[in-house]
Design a binder for these strands. Structure first.
Lengths: 333, 333
DNA sequence: TTGTAAGCGTTATCAA
DNA sequence: TTGATAACGCTTACAA
């Protein structure tokens, strides 16, 4: 039989006060005499009492729980975002629940239902987007919804996005300044809005300059996809001298086969730009020039969206991802 | 004013039944007529009702919440473990809460208090260990406690550990077979029990063979520490020809400076073994021979410890980490 | 099989 | 400032 936790009742008995006094002792700004609060706290400590947030949430209609719904959270960028978000939530007095999903809308819908069962104050979606009806249901029940890097045209939730197209243009400029003319784009096959926005932006910018772009799409957004993408891009007749990779993970894969299999020097023979600025981008083996995800800004925006007095003007934030120059693009001479 | 969620009351009213009927409709194996259950479910669907787990937890004295207490969760090994654990919890019908800590016992103690406030059924500590009194308090309140890779001699919690010393011996054997004689050990300065067990095991095994080991300790268990460790180990007069790195992250740092700064060939001039088998270990730039964390076995053991009928014999599991041969150690010829 | 009523551990309201 | 009492949304005897 499972033991019960210590309750306010127990504390009240030991301290010789009513249970409301115990409640007040743990409510900031409640009207209670210093003396009684002291007695209650003493009793609570000897008993090891902790306020039951489940019961408290029932009363105040606010659980303090925020749900993070995430795919592939063991990926460098994703895990860093999760860490920063959970930390920010903690600092704000909330607590994070994590639900893993695959990319299917159905699994995200299930996650959102779970979120509602625990009466989470808010859900933050790091990937995936379910049916509009379930989104609406969350909203109807008073749950906040924050979408990160989901550029879908959906009304209601707060949305935090990057200027992917702008970054893509900047990447093109960097390549042109380095003297590159045979351009390529290495994408995964998942087709997420933000990923496609990077491709689209790069293609359009190149078109403006009258330059063609070889684009390849393959697999998940992982290192392994980078290796096979490099094989198809570099084996062709008109070998590119610049590849914009939709993600650092892919860029690392591209670099490794470019060097080891095709014996290319980077950046002399081939320039590379990635996206995310994961930790490995700064490692000696890569020194990858990459656009940095503004993780803290994203977390700040998310926390602002969760604040009680969140203004309506913020419902669609677009943040910039600065280009971090390292050694995979020749500097303009 | 925050909106309320739909309650069983609302559903009962719409379905024309009592609230207990609603409760029964969502309790597996409850005695209820098919017809009424159907009516209730219909009503629940149109209203978007989800059982309130907070209130439910209050009644059944079981929240379904399991807390993961973790340091540096954006590290490759850690994030993979968190992903697998959260997934396993989900599959078992539980839900994961995440609390970040620094390594201080105080912050872990605070995390455990938070865990108790949410009446988590169990807490899983991936790092850090607080005062025995707070541990005891969790246990007293009926909360399960699982410690992963914490080799502390503490009674009560379930403990899941690796055979670090055995792995260290195996590493030594591999180096010896490769013809290495000038041994080194690259450790971080954090001094976690499992990290120290690897060092200790390596030193003792080497001593048995009468071989000295140069050991260096520095910084956190991160890539950057590997780079500075390599600098101090490789710059000396009697340059090692084999380095056992306490962690893959450190091994990657060591490899990058060994190659780029000291122009050493791996494994011809220098053999390296790591620990964890993180994803990057398999990347083309490293191809690191490393001991694999048995992540799924760890998760399975943790889930077994959380099961209602968890036997007592399991309280101290020790798992093996197989050596994954890649290309940083010369094969015995 | 069903509804009524009590109880879970809180906070909020209202007298005292 | 304090204690009694009524919610909160659920489950679970107990009767019907």
């Amino acid at each position: 039989m499972k033991k019960n936790f210590v309750s306010a009742q127990d504390v009240a008995a030991l301290a010789g006060v009513s249970r409301s006094a115990v409640s007040r002792a743990f409510t900031p700004g409640a009207s209670i005499a210093d003396d009684t609060r002291h007695r209650v706290v003493m009793a609570a400590n000897t008993l090891g009492y902790q306020v039951n947030q489940l019961a408290r949430g029932l009363m105040v209609n606010r659980s303090g729980i925020v749900c993070l719904i995430v795919t592939e959270m063991d990926t460098p960028y994703r895990s860093r975002l999760v860490r920063v978000l959970t930390q920010a939530l903690q600092d704000a007095g909330n607590i994070a629940m994590i639900i893993n999903t695959d990319r299917s809308d159905e699994s995200v819908a299930q996650a959102l239902q779970q979120t509602m069962r625990y009466r989470a104050d808010a859900s933050i979606l790091l990937s995936g987007l379910p049916d509009r009806s379930i989104v609406q249901r969350c909203l109807d029940n008073g749950q906040r919804l924050v979408l990160i890097n989901r550029d879908d045209p959906i009304e209601g939730p707060y949305r935090i996005n990057l200027d992917d197209a702008g970054a893509a243009r900047q990447a093109l400029d960097a390549f042109l300044a380095a003297g590159c003319r045979r351009l390529a784009f290495a994408n995964s096959a998942v087709g997420t809005p933000s990923l496609m926005a990077r491709e689209q932006g790069f293609l359009e910018a190149a078109q403006t300059c009258g330059l063609p772009v070889a684009v390849a799409r393959h697999g998940a957004t992982l290192y392994q996809s980078g290796t096979t993408l490099a094989q198809s891009l570099l084996a062709g007749p008109n070998r590119p001298d610049a590849i914009f990779c939709v993600t650092d993970l892919i860029a690392c894969g591209v670099m490794d086969v470019a060097r080891q299999q095709f014996e290319l020097r980077i950046p002399e023979d081939l320039c590379i730009i990635g996206f995310d600025d994961i930790e490995q981008a700064s490692w000696g083996a890569y020194e990858l020039t990459s656009f940095a995800q503004p993780i803290t800004a994203i977390a700040d925006a998310a926390m602002a969206a969760l604040a009680d007095d969140a203004p309506n003007g913020l419902t669609n934030q677009r943040l910039n991802s600065p280009l971090i120059w390292r050694k995979t693009v020749r500097e303009p001479s």
